[in-house]
């Protein structure tokens, strides 16, 4: 069994309206050091072992559904987990 963490954020080149507002809120709380905020999604997947290579599957899932690659970037972390 695998525990997979998927992170999806707007691409660098795409303005993130939520991130922009959160950044200015942080500034108003006196954290001027914050130069950028990007807001994204975090997903946890539990995947059973099968014949299909897990990384290949996760990449495919990201491309086909979990991220919209027109505007979003994704990255993932795959951990092998011991079944309970």
């Amino acid at each position: 069994m695998y525990k997979v963490k998927v992170f999806v954020t707007l691409r660098e080149s795409v303005l993130d309206p939520q991130g922009t507002v959160v950044k200015s809120s942080l500034h108003s709380l006196n954290y001027q050091e914050v130069s950028d905020v990007r807001i994204g999604k975090y997903m946890e997947l539990t995947i059973e072992k099968s014949d299909r290579p897990v990384e290949e599957m996760v990449k495919e899932m990201c491309e086909r559904l979990l991220a919209n690659v027109v505007i979003e970037d994704y990255r993932y972390e795959i951990e092998e987990a011991v079944a309970q």
């Binding site: 795409v14 309206p17 939520q18 919209n68 027109v70 505007i71």
Partner: peptide, 17 residues
């Protein structure tokens, strides 16, 4: 239609949120 790839591009949240 955008998600289905029948039209190009994507939607972001409104600038004003």
């Amino acid at each position: 239609l955008l998600e289905a790839g029948l039209l190009p591009g994507a939607m972001r949240r409104n600038e004003s949120l």
